[in-house]
């Protein structure tokens, strides 16, 4: 009888409790249609200022899509834990140079990190960053690389002197971690320690979303969905048994540097 009671108790514990050994966050970043349409408007305004061709008209067969945002390429997501110590410069980061942008349009690194720009494009480039004295235009052919150090925090726009459309951003900021997001916007955080966290999303060099949450239990899984909307309309929700939503911020939040 005692053996049976003990077995039931263990079974009940196992069934009722978190089977994982540590807290885990399953998140997804959703790029809303509103955000894409707002980008379309923004592009339209920029297009008027920029030099365009003679013709730019819908195809007349099916509706034109708004600008596509690839979360893995176009977004930068960082995790910041309250009270965490600086993790120091990252290892040398290799970034591929394409015809129209970098392999990732937005790269987030720790201060003091070196980036190695490697061109895989058949066309020559002359990358530079306005205002950076150590990142001046310099011809870069295919397979050539340029190491550039980013010692200070800030947002650095990368341009190409030969292709005016070329734009990418290097965001240098202190963070606990830089999240890897796939093309569909999914990301996973494992072995999370107890504490308060903030997730910040950057697009085109600007922080467009900020969301905080708290890990209250050592074990369990948090499902998180971050919907990116135009500024002032960001939403986020969390459903879990290990933490609670602390607060939610939108794109009006300033970056840490600005603070």
């Amino acid at each position: 009888m005692l053996r049976f009671v003990a077995f039931v108790a263990v079974l009940a514990f196992c069934l009722s409790g978190n089977p994982t050994l540590a807290a885990k966050v399953q998140g997804k970043i959703v790029v809303t249609k509103e955000l894409r349409e707002s980008l379309s408007e923004l592009d339209g305004k920029n297009r008027k200022a920029a030099s365009t061709g003679y013709w730019n008209e819908p195809n007349g067969v099916i509706q034109v899509d708004p600008p596509f945002v690839n979360p893995s390429r176009d977004l930068g997501v960082v995790l910041i834990k309250d009270g965490a110590a600086d993790r120091g410069p990252d290892d040398v980061l290799t970034v591929k140079v394409l015809a129209g942008s970098l392999e990732k349009n937005l790269v987030i690194i720790e201060p003091g990190t070196r980036i190695k720009f490697v061109s895989i494009d058949p066309y020559d480039h002359e990358l530079y960053s306005p205002g950076m004295k150590n990142f001046l235009p310099e011809k870069q052919s295919r397979n050539a690389f340029r190491p550039i150090d980013f010692p200070k925090e800030g947002v650095f726009e990368v341009r190409c002197k030969l292709f005016s459309h070329f734009k990418a951003w290097i965001v240098v900021t202190k963070s606990t971690d830089v999240l890897k997001v796939d093309a569909k916007g999914a990301f996973t955080l494992e072995d999370m320690e107890l504490g308060k966290y903030t997730i910040k999303v950057s697009h085109r060099g600007a922080w467009i979303h900020e969301q905080s949450f708290e890990i209250e239990k050592e074990r369990g899984e948090i499902k998180m969905e971050i919907k990116l909307t135009p500024k002032g309309k960001a939403t986020g929700k969390k459903s879990s048994d290990t933490g609670k939503k602390k607060k939610k911020k939108n794109g009006k939040q300033k970056s840490r540097k600005d603070k």
């Binding site: 819908p58 509706q63 899509d65």
Partner: peptide, 13 residues
């Protein structure tokens, strides 16, 4: 990233 290519991929001529 070329504006003309991005536009064409979205449906523009």
């Amino acid at each position: 990233g070329f504006p003309v290519v991005d536009s064409a991929l979205r449906g523009y001529v």
